[in-house]
């Protein structure tokens, strides 16, 4: 009985009085393919493809030597964003947004001091043996001594200056840290640091550039003038890296959610924005089963424009008899 009521209701909701008309479907498909191909080729000829120069370690080290040494120091002393991130990289707490992030645990281990600074320097020491005493002095010092050197270096670098590319520190007791950071800067400027960060002694291919990308992910990328319009708080991803090109505008809804104050100010803004965006998608996806909402289009009346010709030709309402299952394979 219920099925009969449903099919009756469906029949009332769906026009039955329409004709089948001859159509060259293959021509239709080839036409749309031709239209898209032509549009894409013309746009490619006229506009090419946006490609904004990435921020390289070499460029950052060359242009911002003091800031570069500060980034290296924060990796060394564990104060950097990645050094203190938490899962999936390490046991830090700085970027843990949810408990599930902690439960999933460490998947891509990063020890920032070792992986970003000390291991690349030990590789550089193979070419520049003068580095070895400093590396050895740092490694053999107690953690407390290392922390004192690093604290002194942090204070010093806040007052350091750039003299023709050389970082000039105020006088102080920095142990081997000053030498290590100067060597890191040289390695960065040489263009070899990217390779040192993506090193994997076990395989010859380099697919994973995680550490090279994450080394610059904090203030170097955040303060880069080129990324300011890409910041999450500035509607980030929907903007292109080069003005004038389209970005990922289809992400407008989650990006908009990201701007909501209670999301932006929450302790887990990224997780919350993605979850709420997913909820919006679920509501869209289950539209056919949401009472009331699913009937909205009929009341909005836009369908009268879409089927303007049909309604013009069928002004009298449900003229034809209900044809049961309707027309299949049309």
């Amino acid at each position: 009985m219920k099925g009969k009521v449903n099919s009756l209701s469906q029949a009332r909701d769906v026009a039955q009085d329409y004709r089948l008309v001859p159509e060259d479907f293959m021509k239709h498909l080839l036409l749309t393919l031709g239209i898209v191909a032509a549009m894409v080729l013309i746009a490619s000829f006229l506009f090419g493809v946006p490609e904004k120069q990435p921020l390289t370690i070499k460029a950052y080290a060359t242009q911002h030597p003091v800031a570069f040494e500060q980034v290296a120091l924060r990796a060394l002393d564990g104060q950097g964003q990645l050094a203190n991130y938490g899962p999936p990289y390490n046991h830090g707490t700085g970027s843990v947004q949810t408990s599930i992030q902690s439960v999933v645990g460490i998947l891509h281990p990063i020890n920032a001091a070792q992986d970003f600074i000390l291991r690349p320097l030990s590789m550089a020491a193979a070419i520049n043996p003068a580095l070895r005493p400093s590396l050895k002095a740092f490694a053999s010092a107690s953690a407390a001594q290392q922390a004192r050197w690093e604290a002194a270096a942090t204070t010093a670098l806040a007052r350091a200056s750039d003299h023709n590319g050389a970082v000039v520190w105020p006088a102080g007791s920095y142990g081997p840290v000053r030498t290590l950071l100067a060597a890191t800067l040289s390695l960065g400027r040489s263009g070899l640091m990217y390779g040192a960060l993506t090193r994997d002694g076990a395989v010859v291919d380099r697919f994973d550039n995680q550490n090279a990308l994450l080394f610059l992910q904090g203030s170097p990328l955040q303060t880069d003038p080129a990324t300011q319009s890409l910041q999450g708080s500035a509607w980030g991803i929907i903007h292109p890296a080069i003005n004038g090109y389209p970005g990922a505008w289809w992400m407008t809804v989650p990006t908009w959610i990201y701007q909501w104050p209670f999301v932006a100010n929450s302790a887990a803004p990224d997780a919350l924005a993605l979850i709420l965006g997913f909820v919006v998608w679920v509501l869209l996806a289950i539209t056919p089963w949401i009472p009331g909402w699913r009937r909205l289009p009929r009341y909005l009346g836009v369908h009268r424009l879409i089927w303007q010709n049909y309604y013009h030709d069928h002004p009298g309402g449900q003229a034809g008899a209900i044809r049961g299952e309707g027309v299949h394979h049309a």
């Binding site: 946006p50 490609e51 599930i100 992030q101 994450l214 080129a226 991803i237």
Partner: peptide, 28 residues
């Protein structure tokens, strides 16, 4: 390009927070 670099390091935080860190956006 910069768009790749920026979005890889930015979007990772959302995936990590949702426990989807096995999808490593910085692993080309």
């Amino acid at each position: 390009d910069l768009y790749s670099q920026w979005n890889a390091v930015q979007a990772k935080d959302g995936l990590n927070a949702l426990g989807l860190g096995w999808v490593n956006l910085t692993d080309a």
